[in-house]
Computed example of a mutant assay.
Amino acid sequence: MLLQIKDTGALVKIVEIQELLDPNSDVVQAKDQEGQEEQEPETFKKENLIFPSGELLPRCWLDAEYRHDNA
């Protein structure tokens, strides 16, 4: 799955989808898609990632307590 870094617009390929879906993890391993060669995985904060369409990641991927919010 490809996601985009909010600040730079660069695309990253998520290494392990389960890590992305886990709301108890605030980081994810991904490979920068810049250049021709396969890049080494780096750690990215989920809060700094969006879908390439510009949509935010679902709250249930970011916040383990999303069901308990009274707002």
Results as ranks from 00 to 15, higher is better:
residue 20 L to S: 10
residue 24 N to K: 07
residue 56 L to P: 01
residue 60 C to T: 04
residue 34 E to F: 01
residue 9 G to Y: 08
residue 50 I to A: 08
residue 52 P to F: 08
residue 17 I to Q: 09
residue 14 I to G: 03
residue 56 L to W: 08
residue 25 S to L: 11
residue 30 A to I: 05
residue 21 L to C: 01
residue 36 Q to N: 11
residue 58 P to W: 08
residue 32 D to L: 15
residue 57 L to I: 09
residue 53 S to W: 03
residue 36 Q to D: 12
residue 53 S to T: 14
residue 24 N to G: 06
residue 65 E to K: 13
residue 60 C to S: 11
residue 21 L to V: 01
residue 22 D to I: 01
residue 54 G to S: 04
residue 52 P to G: 00
residue 11 L to T: 04
residue 53 S to V: 00
residue 58 P to S: 10
residue 8 T to W: 12
residue 47 E to V: 13
residue 66 Y to N: 05
residue 56 L to H: 09
residue 11 L to M: 11
residue 19 E to K: 06
residue 34 E to M: 07
residue 57 L to G: 02
residue 46 K to S: 06
residue 22 D to F: 00
residue 20 L to W: 06
residue 29 Q to V: 07
residue 40 E to Q: 14
residue 53 S to R: 04
residue 46 K to Y: 00
residue 55 E to H: 08
residue 10 A to V: 14
residue 45 K to P: 10
residue 6 K to S: 09
residue 65 E to T: 07
residue 13 K to T: 12
residue 51 F to D: 00
residue 25 S to N: 10
residue 10 A to W: 10
residue 24 N to Y: 15
residue 51 F to A: 02
residue 57 L to C: 04
residue 48 N to V: 13
residue 34 E to P: 01
residue 33 Q to A: 11
residue 61 W to E: 02
residue 8 T to S: 15
residue 1 M to V: 15
residue 46 K to P: 03
residue 53 S to C: 04
residue 7 D to L: 13
residue 21 L to I: 07
residue 70 N to K: 11
residue 23 P to L: 00
residue 60 C to G: 01
residue 15 V to M: 13
residue 37 E to P: 01
residue 18 Q to W: 02
residue 39 Q to G: 07
residue 25 S to M: 03
residue 64 A to L: 12
residue 3 L to Y: 03
residue 27 V to I: 11
residue 19 E to N: 10
residue 18 Q to M: 10
residue 47 E to M: 12
residue 69 D to T: 07
residue 62 L to Y: 03
residue 67 R to I: 11
residue 41 P to V: 08
residue 27 V to N: 01
residue 12 V to T: 06
residue 68 H to N: 08
residue 59 R to S: 07
residue 15 V to C: 14
residue 14 I to A: 09
residue 38 E to T: 13
residue 48 N to Q: 13
residue 25 S to A: 05
residue 59 R to Q: 12
residue 71 A to I: 10
residue 65 E to S: 06
residue 25 S to T: 07
residue 54 G to L: 07
residue 65 E to R: 05
residue 28 V to Y: 10
residue 66 Y to A: 11
residue 33 Q to C: 05
residue 2 L to S: 09
residue 67 R to D: 11
residue 8 T to C: 04
residue 1 M to L: 15
residue 37 E to D: 14
residue 20 L to A: 00
residue 10 A to Q: 13
residue 53 S to I: 00
residue 52 P to T: 00
residue 62 L to C: 08
residue 64 A to G: 03
residue 54 G to E: 04
residue 5 I to Y: 08
residue 11 L to I: 12
residue 30 A to R: 00
residue 45 K to H: 12
residue 64 A to W: 05
residue 68 H to C: 06
residue 29 Q to C: 14
residue 35 G to L: 03
